[in-house]
Design a protein around this nucleic acid. Sequence first.
DNA 1: TAGATTGTTAATCGATTAACAATC
DNA 2: TAGATTGTTAATCGATTAACAATC
Lengths: 220, 220
Amino acid sequence: MSKNSISNSVIRRLPRYYRFLGELESNGYIRISSRELSEKMGLTASQIRQDFNCFGEFGQQGYGYNVSDLRGEIGHILGLDKLTPMILLGAGNLGKAIASHIDFHNKGFDLIGAFDVNADIVGKQIGELTVRDLNDLESFCRENKPVAAILCVPTSAAAKMADILIGCGIKAFWNFTHYDMRTGRKGIAVENVHLGDSLTTLSYGLNSMEKAEDEASEEK
Amino acid sequence: MSKNSISNSVIRRLPRYYRFLGELESNGYIRISSRELSEKMGLTASQIRQDFNCFGEFGQQGYGYNVSDLRGEIGHILGLDKLTPMILLGAGNLGKAIASHIDFHNKGFDLIGAFDVNADIVGKQIGELTVRDLNDLESFCRENKPVAAILCVPTSAAAKMADILIGCGIKAFWNFTHYDMRTGRKGIAVENVHLGDSLTTLSYGLNSMEKAEDEASEEK
DNA sequence: TAGATTGTTAATCGATTAACAATC
DNA sequence: TAGATTGTTAATCGATTAACAATC
């Protein structure tokens, strides 16, 4: 390994760095110091310097970081300077919305196909894509070699679908089902989204806040 | 505070515990030990016991945990035993999909309204809701007192929209825009989803895996 | 050169794991 | 009672913060 493996905490912050640096660049920033960036992002300057130094020396003492260069480096680390072919499984409400809402090219992917089992959906358009029958999946994969997949199928179908896709050569899953795909399978990258858990967390946040306020007001 | 504040790491695991316990319950489990649960969830038994003990003593020595009771306790901690009225802002592709895809009642929320500025969308149905004009937001809030909001508006409109909503009494935000809502504003709960960052993280995972494999094959 | 700011080491803090006494 | 498993304390591990020498 070139730089012995990066911790998950750091990786989770990289997309946000990339996003902020993009905004800074559009706002005309040429350089930025770790202190200034820390204020904008709500982190410490120390953490920012530590994070960047996992990957190399991107800054210059007495000057700071060149915004455009740094953004380029992080983009490269994230693999955004090439396009991985991706397919969508399940073109219902959610799948369709994801497919049309996300700027895939800016995230390092190219959405090249969409599949569903529902005869009412097959043949419909999603942007420039025509939804295909799931029966055509294998032949499509042989021909077009997609490497990544979006799972928007019903949770009950997720595990089986994942196995089929791995058989077709898929190596990365963006999983929107409630099925907990175990990350760390041999040579498979997984990103579980779990919107339901996210909303549940919000419920906790709201309720614990209200509880704290109630207790504060009782203390008078 | 009853049990001095719970760490974020624990909170993030709670929805997943709740989900797994629900599945166990439907599969007929009456009791489960921390060891058995740890194997199913891919955690350590120690961590599970530590987590639960943040909130009280839910188990019984020599026996384990009663699945249904434990699920109830965690549900209560998460605030799932009441319904917080919630509204949707932005009923485009993504907003519509979220609204129809999520089981709000099981996450402690009740979706009671949807709003958009687009005349083509206003008046359309999302499930049982009719999309309203954004101009009607304030009067709707005065009358129906929603407490939570889903932000599916364009990123450029997010900051202003959030301020308006706070003015209308909204206390919890489920934010799907790219605007980084700073969590920890006075009395406001925020859950940022950032689908784009999630996909970017997948790109990193895929690319770093491929790099590792390339290096491994060079080493022969 | 003097001032600024990085890269990096050391100190602190927090979260996870291990161990075991308490007890069902 | 004996066996099992919790609740909880102590040990370890990892991540964040602070400090400062290196250097632009």
